[in-house]
Structures are given as structure tokens and as C-alpha cells.
Amino acid sequence: MGENSASSGRHALQVTVALEGDGASIAQARHLAADFLTRVQAEYGLSVSQRAMDLSQLVVSELVTNAVNYAPGPVLLDLRITGDAVEIVVWDGDPVLPVARAADVGRVGQHGLEIVMAVAQGFEAYREPVGKRITARIAHLDDPGAAFPGQRTL
């Protein structure tokens, strides 16, 4: 795993890494997410709820797993804090955009995208000149007025 950048810009605290695109990449990505959020808390005093920490690792794991399983080659993972959210961006070399499947309690596996869409406050998928880019946003603080922790009230 090679770390390409870690910066504290005007708008975002950020880290970007290139992952090999193999099975070890999934665990590396989860650890990177935990380390990144721990570091922004310690170094910049940013509050990150335990739920946001857990959900960020879950989303990173699901998105990187999909990239490793369905796309050839390396995976690029970008984590950043923008406003009140952790943005998780995963790029891979396959241009086919993911599609959430209809709910099926009998289906074993292939629920990753459903999970991401259920826990994220925002989700986007775009084709790139090479491959695709998936972005998910997780609130880094829980909203006490929400129906459940981590959810935002409108």
C-alpha cells in the first residue's frame, strides 16, 4: 500500500492511497480508515462518533471488496473530511456502474451496495475516463434528533 498524499487543505483533511487490488487490500483499507479518523481527532480536534468510525470502516470495506472482486487491477482509496461528513471515494478500473439488487432475504452475499446505500447520507457513482469512481458520505457526528444515531434530520 502506498500513501500518495495526506493534506490539510482549506476544505478537507484528506488521505489517498493506491491499493494493490488483492484480498489484502480490504483489511488495509479498513485500517487506513480507522487510522485516518483517529488521526484527525487527535491532530485536529475533530469529533468523530464511534458509530461514524464503525460505519466508515464498513463502507470502506464494502466498496473496496466490490472493487477487488469485480474490477481488474489497482484500487484508489481517498478519505476526506468535508464539512460534517467523512467522504469515502473508491476508484477502480471497471467502467460498469454498480446497481443495487432488489432485496432478497434468501440471497447469500452480494449485499454490499445495499448496505452502503442504507448507512450512507450520500452515495454517487460516476464513470471516469478510465474506470469508475464511487463516493459515499458518512456523517462524522450523530444527530441527536434523528430516528437512529447517524441519521440526519431534514
Rank of each mutant, 00 (worst) to 15 (best):
I81M: 12
D104F: 10
S56H: 01
W91K: 10
P95F: 12
L76T: 15
L63M: 15
V86R: 03
L79N: 04
N69D: 14
D84G: 14
Y70N: 08
V108I: 15
L55M: 13
A100P: 02
P95C: 14
I88R: 01
D78W: 00
V86I: 12
E62I: 08
L55G: 04
D94N: 15
L97Y: 12
I81D: 02
A100H: 03
L79T: 03
T82N: 10
W91C: 09
E62N: 07
T82Y: 11
P74K: 15
V96D: 12
P74V: 06
R80S: 09
D78T: 14
T65R: 07
L113N: 06
V86T: 08
V68L: 04
P95Y: 09
Q110S: 14
V99S: 14
V89W: 03
L55Y: 05
Q110Y: 00
G106S: 14
L77G: 08
L63R: 05
V99I: 14
A67R: 00
I88D: 04
P74G: 12
A103S: 09
N66P: 05
P95S: 15
E62Y: 03
V59C: 03
G112L: 04
L77D: 00
V75H: 06
D94I: 10
H111R: 12
D84M: 07
L63C: 03
V99T: 15
R107F: 06
V99G: 03
V86W: 01
D78A: 10
L58P: 02
V59L: 02
D94R: 11
L79P: 03
G93N: 15
L77Y: 01
S56W: 04
S56M: 05
P95N: 13
N66K: 08
H111W: 07
Q110L: 12
E62Q: 12
V60P: 01
E62L: 05
R101C: 03
E87A: 11
V108Q: 14
L58W: 01
A100N: 00
A67G: 15
S61K: 05
E62G: 00
P98Y: 07
I88N: 01
R101H: 08
S56Y: 01
T65C: 01
G83R: 11
P72M: 11
A103Q: 13
E62C: 09
N69K: 14
R80F: 04
A103W: 13
R101W: 06
M53T: 06
D84H: 13
D84N: 14
A67L: 05
P72R: 11
V96F: 11
P72I: 05
V59W: 00
W91Y: 08
G73K: 11
Q110F: 05
L77Q: 00
A85R: 04
A85N: 09
E87C: 06
A67H: 01
E87H: 11
D54P: 01
V68R: 04
D54V: 05
R101N: 05
V60K: 02
V68M: 07
P98C: 10
V108M: 12
V105A: 13
P95M: 15
A67D: 04
V105W: 00
V108H: 14
V60Q: 04
